[in-house]
Write a protein that binds this DNA or RNA. Structure first.
Lengths: 256, 256
DNA sequence: TGCCGGTGTGGCATTTTGTGGCAATTTCTG
DNA sequence: CAGAAATTGCCACAAAATGCCACACCGGCA
């Protein structure tokens, strides 16, 4: 029928490049409905103009260091990416997914970029921006007051917005895990909001990278619902592991 | 009427160009019920007038065809920056400011980065992210479904969220301004939302850079309230200026 | 009737895209 | 660490879409 115009294709590629920093040939080919060879030729053309940078499997944008995003992700980036990929494997087509704010859930968002038939709900600005720029995912932002630290919305508006949605899977981060295995958070409000997010989801996954183990943050988190699993990048210390087992929380370890 | 006149055909083509950034010969031929050759001749005519840009398979707008935010930012960046600075000068400390989505309002956000004692309400992801990262401004995000093109929230959730706030100043963008001086927008929903935003603000400023003059977009915008002023970077054409005067809209020209 | 602008049709050159095979690279696995 | 399996890059050729030109057709008009 009507192929998309070559020029709008390259346009789309540049956009995706701006948003994600890198694009893959296979993904673009699928998303744009053309063959991989065509995408390769597009990338070559863009590379000839100096607008893209060819790498194996796709193209990347020169030295685009994303601001604070990359900086925070730098802390245990590999582990978080592994958790993100693992978590993404639980997301089936056609589902509604709730993503909490935080660098670990952002890693999950990166892993969801290739998906198309899912709806993502989030209070995180970077996650919303990433997914709306470079994926076919439907994105709904939960509004509210922005916490500059988390770059995400919190507050009664966020809680109220949450009420309106049916969520299949909720992916929640945590501030820290005490030596006794208790989940903790930075503030009462954040804790309460995560609590509501858990209640909103039919299945709840906690994303915990190992830098959170035995990190103390001030507020105890209330766990109101069943936890489908914790996804971690390294096995937790014994005492924490025992606490998880006592609560019957399955622990899934992502491989790097 | 079976066969649309050549003029109205080219009109349609220009509209499609503005809306999508690029058009394809095949699609237009099918839509308008004429042969591809005829469309090609139309495009050639438009290209001769400098109103379109031929590419293989169709035509594109300007040098790079594309309506995405990243590119719109580049279009007339200086003019938009001037408008942004001028608009920022109306923002006093302690006020609540509503920023519409769009590249011109994003320019205003840049100009507000150094302010501290203001509260910003916006449905635009880039604006929210920018202000929460690099300023002391309190930011509240209006949630809703994200339109990837605008990178901003639209929909009933956004409208509902808007109801909860008292806004001193509202800064609104427009999709285009017809030759008769009518404000237009890309979609009914966007138009309605801007309408509500205007009603929410005690004082309403419209931000219009000159690339909007005589640009056609499909939906008429309802102006429900008093307009404090239009802020422009260049004086509008006579006919548009007269229309503004007839409505008693003060026009403020920002200096570059 | 003959002219004229606009339009459709068909043929052919050109450009773009798809396909299949094979080499090179990466990733997985034991 | 080595070898297998999967992915990707690359090339050449085929297929499809598009551009372009010449010419026929149609309807209005003097």
């Amino acid at each position: 029928m009507n192929r998309p115009l070559a020029i709008s294709r390259q346009d789309h590629i540049l956009n995706a490049l701006d948003a994600a920093g890198a694009v893959s040939v296979s993904l673009l080919a699928e998303r744009l409905g053309v063959s991989r060879e065509t995408i390769r030729r597009d990338l070559k053309a863009l590379a000839d103009q100096g607008r893209a940078n060819l790498v194996h499997g796709g193209a990347a944008r020169g030295t685009t260091a994303e601001p604070s995003l990359a900086a925070r992700q730098a802390a245990n980036a590999r582990g978080k990416a592994a958790i993100g990929r693992k978590a993404a494997s639980f997301v089936e087509d056609g589902t509604v997914v709730l993503l909490d704010s935080g660098s670990t859930t952002l890693a999950l968002a990166y892993a969801l970029v290739e998906r198309k038939d899912i709806t993502v709900l989030t209070n995180s600005l970077p996650i919303a921006l990433l997914l709306c720029r470079s994926s076919g995912v439907k994105v709904t932002m939960l509004g509210g007051e922005i916490d500059p630290n988390d770059e995400a919305a919190f507050g009664i508006d966020t809680l109220a917005a949450l009420e309106h949605f049916r969520v299949d899977l909720a992916f929640i981060g945590v501030g820290g895990i005490s030596a006794e295995g208790e989940l903790t958070d930075y503030s009462r409000l954040a804790s309460e909001q995560r609590h509501r997010m858990m209640k909103a989801g039919k299945k709840v996954f906690l994303l915990v990278d190992h830098s959170k183990f035995e990190r103390r943050t001030p507020v105890k988190m209330a766990i109101g619902s069943q936890i489908a699993a914790l996804i971690v990048d390294k096995p937790p210390p014994k005492r924490i592991a025992q606490a998880f087992a006592a609560r019957r929380w399955p622990v899934i370890q992502a491989k790097a």
